[in-house]
Every structure is written in structure tokens, then in C-alpha cells.
């Protein structure tokens, strides 16, 4: 049984009077522990796919399931629950809270899960140490470099020990050196910690760390390439 299973998924948006068909009958299966890269030109439906896989949105039609749960049949509360426990997100623009320190940013998902302060502080420190920022725990985002911010974002995504990590253009705002560090970290998360990592990217270097590359075009999977 695949971890993520999409069959004939469509997603339509209304933009004024126009209906945009972002996904047009998409089939996709992702196994536990895989690193998968989703590539495609702008407007191909990459982000929409990530939103559905990440339980941020529901399909217009078709079946999308995470483990055995049908995403479209879940209530908003259950979707929140899934996001809180099973899924972590890393964004291109990091999306850290500017008013909080690195540690507090990492603690944020744990706050929403009602974890005790001492417990979450300890876990935040461990995660920041894991991503190589042990000496930056009290720094605010504006005191960190782009690469460091993205590492804080990865630590935040791992806060509730999710099974699946979604990274939306994780190297898009980074120089090649910082980008390389982030990609190494993402690979480590899969190989060492058994996380399923799904990277949405334009960057061939980012796609290179994936075991499988899925190419989208006009809301459909047009090619699947397995990396050697």
C-alpha cells in the first residue's frame, strides 16, 4: 500500500468567470521513505499537487489518499490533525515568523499540538543541532543567512516528527553552496531518518537527489524518471 496514492485527481479553480484546470486526471503513487522530485514548467500544477498531497487542499474529483485516509472525505479538523502530525512543509521563502527566535520558530508547530514548554524546548534544540544551528538558537530570522533560515525552516518542519516532508523550491532563494547544504540535509532525512521527502522544484540539482523524478505538464504526469 503506497503512502500517498492519487487516482484520476482533478483540481479546478475559478478565477473570476474563468475556470482553471490545474490538475487534469492525475495518477501518482509515492512509497514510504522515497525521495521524489516533482518538476514541470510554471502552471503545470506542481504547487496544486503539493497542496493536495500535503492536505492543504482537497481535489475537485478523483481519489487522493494518505495511507488509508481519503483526503476528500476528511473534515477540516482531521486535515489539520494530519498536517500537524504526519506532514512537514519547507517553503521557498522560508516563511519564518520574524518576531520569533530560531528556537521559537521551531517550537511553533509543537505549541499548536499542546506540547509542554520544557519538552518542546529540548526538541527544538535537538532539531536545530541536527541541522547544524546549535549556536544560532536565539537568533531571529533577520540575523540569519538564507541557508540558515532554510535550515531553521527544515527543523520546524520536523518539529512534530512527520512521516512526510514537502519542500517547495527549497533551494530557490539560495546560492549554490547553501542550496547544496539544504539538499544534503533533505537526503539525510530520507536515508538516515526514513522520512518521505517530496521536493517540488525547477532546480536540476535538487531533482538529482531524488530517487524518482515526476514531470508534470498541464496538470498531468507526462514522464516519470528513476534516478540511478
Amino acid at each position: 500500500m503506497p503512502l500517498l496514492d492519487l487516482r484520476g485527481v482533478t483540481k479546478d479553480y475559478k478565477l473570476g468567470k474563468t475556470v482553471v484546470h490545474a490538475l487534469r486526471g492525475l495518477d501518482l503513487r509515492i512509497e514510504k521513505g522515497e525521495i521524489v522530485a516533482i518538476m514541470g514548467p510554471s502552471g503545470s500544477g506542481k504547487s496544486t499537487l503539493m497542496h493536495i498531497l500535503g492536505c492543504l487542499d482537497v481535489p475537485t474529483s478523483g481519489e487522493a489518499s494518505i495511507e488509508e485516509s481519503q483526503i476528500s472525505s476528511l473534515s477540516e479538523k482531521q486535515l489539520v490533525e494530519l498536517r500537524g502530525h504526519k506532514i512537514g512543509f519547507v517553503f521557498q521563502t522560508f516563511n519564518l515568523m520574524q518576531t520569533l527566535s530560531a528556537q521559537q520558530n521551531v517550537e511553533l508547530p509543537m505549541i499548536f499540538q499542546g506540547m509542554k514548554k520544557k519538552e518542546r524546548a529540548q526538541r527544538a534544540t535537538e532539531l536545530l543541532t541536527m541541522v547544524g544551528l546549535a549556536d544560532r538558537v536565539n537568533h531571529r530570522p533577520n540575523e540569519l543567512s538564507g541557508g540558515e533560515r532554510q535550515r531553521v525552516a527544515i527543523a520546524r518542519a520536523l518539529a512534530n516528527d512527520p512521516e512526510i516532508l514537502f519542500a517547495d523550491e527549497p533551494t530557490g532563494n539560495l546560492d549554490s553552496e547553501s542550496g547544496g547544504t539544504i539538499l544534503e540535509l533533505l537526503k539525510r532525512l530520507s536515508t538516515e531518518y526514513g522520512k518521505t521527502v517530496i521536493i517540488v522544484t525547477h532546480d536540476p540539482d535538487a531533482a538529482a537527489i531524488a530517487e524518482r523524478i515526476i514531470h508534470l505538464h498541464d496538470g498531468r504526469v507526462v514522464e516519470e524518471v528513476k534516478n540511478a
Binding site: V80, R83, F89, N95, M97, F112, N160
Partner: peptide, 16 residues
């Protein structure tokens, strides 16, 4: 708005 989206993405409920 974006911050609210991020908070929700990392597990915040509407009530939070």
C-alpha cells in the same frame, strides 16, 4: 495573511 497560512500549514487550528 501569509503568516496565518504558515501557522495553519504547521498545524494551527482555526480556533488557535
Amino acid at each position: 495573511t501569509k503568516e496565518i497560512g504558515v501557522m495553519k500549514a504547521v498545524g494551527a487550528r482555526n480556533s488557535h
